[in-house]
């Protein structure tokens, strides 16, 4: 399980953030000792750091510079300082991403996920039972057959696949679609899901995507 360190002095936010990360399958850890923030970060040795700029003692930007002297751990700046200068500075100090409060929690999770993907440099090929899914080429295939998925169908399928066995809300799917510049409406989402179902049926997975009424979808 990936460990994500939360460097944030607002306790309400840090606790809810931990909650969010834990629910999403990460191990959220809250930094407590701001006096010795750097030492604690080293001790925790996290896989990713969510770093606020306005924190007590050493501010986020300075802490970021200090960490970067020794480590390449992925860092996302999460801050309410919504200026271009702060963003440019943070990125030049070596932050991997910059997101401003208040943020859409789903978007934050997507950004974290993307960052891990980018860093691990996975070849992006996913599998679902005997199916191979190649999001870059937009195809899904088994030994005998190969089908093309549209951009939207692929976004939906990879999201469901990443959360396989868990309920995915329509809102989460919509957020991921919109985050990829597909500004579709509810009807279009229905159409895309039914097309995806038809394509999966072609491979013999008839009821792979189950509808949970009032909750969302689940990929079995």
């Amino acid at each position: 399980m990936k460990k994500i360190l939360i460097v944030e002095d607002d306790t309400s936010i840090s606790e809810e953030l931990k909650n969010l990360l834990d629910n999403a399958g990460y191990n959220g850890v809250i930094l407590k000792d701001f006096e010795n923030s750097y030492a604690e970060i080293k001790r925790e040795n996290p896989d990713l750091i969510l770093l606020d700029i306005n924190i007590p003692k050493l501010n986020g930007e300075m802490l970021l510079q200090k960490i970067r002297k020794e480590s390449n751990v992925p860092i996302i700046m999460v801050t309410s300082k919504n200026t271009e200068t702060d963003e440019v500075l943070s990125l030049s100090y070596g932050a991997n991403d910059y997101i401003t409060k208040p943020y859409n929690p789903t978007i934050l999770l997507l950004r974290i996920n993307n960052l891990f993907k980018r860093i691990e440099n996975k070849n992006d090929i996913l599998t679902y039972n005997d199916l191979t899914v190649d999001p870059k080429k937009g195809i899904i295939k088994n030994d005998k057959e190969e089908l093309i998925l549209t951009k939207n169908e692929m976004i939906i399928f990879t999201f469901l696949l990443a959360n396989r066995g868990n309920i995915v809300t329509r809102d989460d799917l919509m957020t991921d679609l919109w985050n990829n510049d597909s500004y579709i409406n509810d009807n279009a989402l229905n159409v895309n899901i039914s097309r995806l179902r038809t394509k999966l049926t072609d491979f013999g997975y008839e009821d792979a995507i189950e509808t949970r009424k009032g909750q969302g979808y689940i990929l079995k």
């Binding site: 607002d10 309400s12 936010i13 809810e16 953030l17 909650n19 969010l20 629910n23 306005n54 309410s80 300082k81 409060k101 208040p102 943020y103 859409n104 929690p105 789903t106």
Partner: peptide, 18 residues
């Protein structure tokens, strides 16, 4: 003040989501 006011907003967004 605006940076401060954004904190409870961020917190509320997370609470509603969680």
């Amino acid at each position: 003040w605006i940076h401060e006011a954004k904190l409870p907003l961020a917190s509320l967004n997370l609470i509603v989501h969680n």
